[in-house]
Nucleic acid binder design. Structure first.
Lengths: 209, 209
DNA sequence: ATCATTTGAGACATTTATGTCGCAAATGAT
DNA sequence: ATCATTTGCGACATAAATGTCTCAAATGAT
């Protein structure tokens, strides 16, 4: 039974999500084709990863479009912006789930991917800026920090899914709550802000499978 | 001029933070020694990475000790717990800065590292549980989600440092504020919670340098 | 049944990284 | 100055992954 290029792509994504360091031989086996056939579809491992990364960027763009990010920026309406933010976050969960390995794939530094990624992030930054102006997001946090925070929270999503820490259906709620309100009890002062001494790296849960 | 084992370690960390995929040859050059000399200190690349990962775990443990995590858990006092949380977060920034590549190093799945990491995370989980009981952290978020969130925020710290998105001195404040209060404007309802359609992966800024 | 197309198998070549080794050179100690 | 120790160099070996190629086998179309 012939396997289509798209089926190979789907299998490759799923396998790389499970084992980001998987070899071409591993991927071919997971896709149910031989290495020679994989090479007939993709000229190299690098070529395959380029295709996968572009697909992830496509989904990121789709999420922004479907959430109406640009319309929300133009409207400036708090309610519209809030909805756009929420929908974008929820859309990003799906993308994080489907393309989880891409979140930390070093191949993203390739210029053509870098450019697309920067452009998409630029749109998010515009949304965060509009949200700050509209009083939806607090204005005392740099928008680039907020963007990096969203990225970090997507990795939290990925970890939670991989380790079964959080039920899939709970993820939208906990992500939204954490992003908008944080983990602190409502009304609690934020942490004392005193810096601890040079100290321990964060959880080394990355890559756990 | 002879280079000590510790100097090699420091140079290796700095170089790997810059280029996580650096080869043994790259690391030797960065350390100012030959490959043969590097091999006299470390039996293999795997051995070197094991040493570096243990060092990162040492710092994570130090951060917990210095922040008085266990004492805070025992005391149950909201103020003590809040201070412990804050100090731990600040300590983790330093660790994230010094050992940033470890956050996404796949080598952490080695059993001996896995065990230490799980133990350290267990202590953090105990702190988050105590914090929820004391009313410092909201109780409606799973503690494992909170732990993953801290990990994700450390990656946000890493990205912000690598890209110069946030001034180093502002990181403790923005991390604390985001962790305890989120990015939403105070009093704003959290996002609508409606899931967007299957959509775009988060910023592919990982690995950007 | 026959022909055309696609695929798998596996041999082979290439590339890159790692690991080992011997010895001259450099460095350090006396 | 001499001796001991350490290091760098580079050749060599090993390993793993990737890429290429040929051809028989499998599959699909007629």
């Amino acid at each position: 039974m012939a396997v289509s290029r798209d089926q190979i792509i789907v299998a490759a994504i799923q396998h790389l999500n499970h084992d980001p360091a998987a070899s071409i031989a591993d991927i071919a086996e997971a896709a149910g084709v031989s290495r020679a056939t994989l090479h007939r579809h993709f000229t190299s491992r690098e070529d395959l990863l380029l295709v996968l990364n572009h697909r992830a960027l496509d989904l990121w763009k789709d999420a922004q479009v479907k959430a109406g990010v640009e319309e929300a920026v133009r409207s400036g309406e708090p309610a519209v912006i809030t909805t756009a933010l929420s929908e974008m976050l929820s859309g990003l969960i799906d993308a994080a789930e489907e393309y989880s390995f891409v979140l930390t794939d070093l191949g993203m530094s390739v210029p053509e991917l870098r450019e697309r990624s920067d452009e998409l992030e630029g749109r998010e930054l515009a949304l965060y800026q509009a949200a700050q102006r509209a009083g939806v997001l607090r204005a005392d946090l740099p928008v680039r920090w907020i963007s990096n925070t969203v990225y970090g929270l997507l990795l939290a999503v990925r970890e939670s899914l991989n380790r079964g820490d959080v039920a899939r259906r709970d993820l939208p709620r906990v992500l939204h709550e954490t992003f908008f309100r944080g983990a602190g009890e409502r009304g609690t002062q934020s942490g004392a802000g005193e810096r601890g001494p040079g100290s321990g790296g964060g959880p080394q849960s990355a890559g756990s499978a």
